[in-house]
Structure formats: C-alpha cells, structure tokens
Amino acid sequence: MAENTFMLEIVTPEQILFKNEVQFLVAPAVEGELGVMRNHAPIVAALKIGVLRYKDATGTQQKIAISGGFMEVVDNKARVLAETAEHGHEVDVLRARAAADRAKQRLNMRDENINYARAQLSMQRAMARLKAAEAKVD
C-alpha cells in the first residue's frame, strides 16, 4: 500500500462494486459530508442518498451514486455497505432523467393516493445518479 493511500471497499447486497486503494474519500453521511484520509480515527457512520467521491491511487477523482447504508473506517480500511451503488460513468443518464421527471410529476400532484415520501426518495436517488454522472441537473 502506498504511503498516502488506504483501502476502500464498497459493497451492495448484489456485489462488491469497488475494492482498491484511494487517497481520500468524501461520503454523504446523515450528519453531513464525511471526509476520510489515511490514518483516520475509527468511525461508523450512517449514509444517506447521495454521491460518494474519492480520489484513486493515481489522483483521478471518481464518483459513485449511493442510496444509503453505512460506512466503517478502521485500520486504514474504509468499508461502505450500501443499499445500492453505481459508478458515475455507468449511469444511464436518460433513464435517471426520466425517473426524476416521474418523481417531480408525482410530487406536484394533489392526490391523496400519492405516496409523497416514496416520490421524494425516488427524486433524491435520481438526482444523486445524475450528479454522479456529472450530467446537468434541472
């Protein structure tokens, strides 16, 4: 392991999405963004829907859309257990925009049969996916 890196592992129920050395990461914690670098103090944090950013060992910044979960940091290893996670460069931007539009329409309806909490979560997931893809967010 390089002198200024630590191991980052991102796991979903379906797969190990990422496992490699990184220089730093910024995670969307429930209490606000949480930055981690090598030799960070041990911590466990709840994550919310958002974009996890990290700089890989070569110095390139990468983004991953996640929809909640937990992160544990201990002994220069950060482990993210996410409900879902998707690399920004793999996001289907048209599909994410369509999901955001559907959620926006549901949120603007005045219908008691609409589950507004579910629509808000759907909007947040779509927006996180678009931000991770670095697509223009309306």
Rank of each mutant, 00 (worst) to 15 (best):
E3L: 10
N4V: 12
N4F: 06
T5I: 04
F6W: 02
L8D: 01
T12N: 05
T12K: 10
T12H: 06
T12D: 03
P13D: 08
E14F: 09
Q15A: 12
L17R: 10
F18R: 09
F18L: 13
K19F: 15
N20V: 03
N20R: 13
V22F: 00
Q23P: 00
F24K: 05
L25H: 00
L25G: 00
V26W: 00
V26K: 02
V26Q: 03
A27F: 02
A27I: 02
P28M: 10
P28R: 04
E33W: 07
E33I: 03
G35H: 12
V36M: 02
M37T: 15
M37R: 14
M37H: 11
R38K: 13
N39V: 06
H40K: 10
H40D: 11
H40T: 15
H40R: 10
P42S: 13
P42T: 15
I43E: 12
A45S: 12
A45L: 04
A46P: 01
A46W: 14
A46E: 13
L47T: 01
L47V: 04
L47P: 00
I49E: 01
R53Y: 14
R53T: 13
Y54Q: 02
Y54F: 04
Y54K: 02
D56L: 07
D56A: 15
D56P: 01
T58D: 11
G59V: 03
T60C: 11
T60H: 08
Q61W: 06
Q61M: 10
Q62D: 15
K63N: 11
K63M: 13
K63Y: 08
I64N: 00
I64M: 08
A65V: 02
G68V: 03
F70W: 13
F70H: 10
M71Y: 08
M71H: 06
E72R: 11
V74M: 07
D75P: 00
N76C: 07
K77H: 12
A78L: 01
R79S: 05
L81Y: 09
A82F: 03
A82C: 15
T84S: 04
A85S: 05
H87K: 04
D92Y: 15
D92A: 15
V93K: 15
L94W: 06
L94A: 13
L94Y: 14
L94D: 15
L94P: 02
R95Y: 06
A99Y: 10
A99S: 09
A99G: 14
A100S: 11
A103F: 03
A103V: 03
K104Q: 12
K104T: 14
K104D: 11
Q105E: 05
R106Q: 09
R106D: 07
L107D: 08
M109R: 09
R110L: 08
D111E: 12
D111S: 10
N113P: 01
N113T: 04
N115Q: 15
N115D: 15
Y116N: 12
Y116I: 04
A117E: 03
R118D: 11
L121V: 05
S122H: 06
R125N: 04
A126R: 00
M127I: 07
K131A: 14
K131C: 03
E134K: 05
E134L: 05
A135R: 06
K136T: 04
V137T: 07
V137F: 07
V137K: 05
D138H: 09
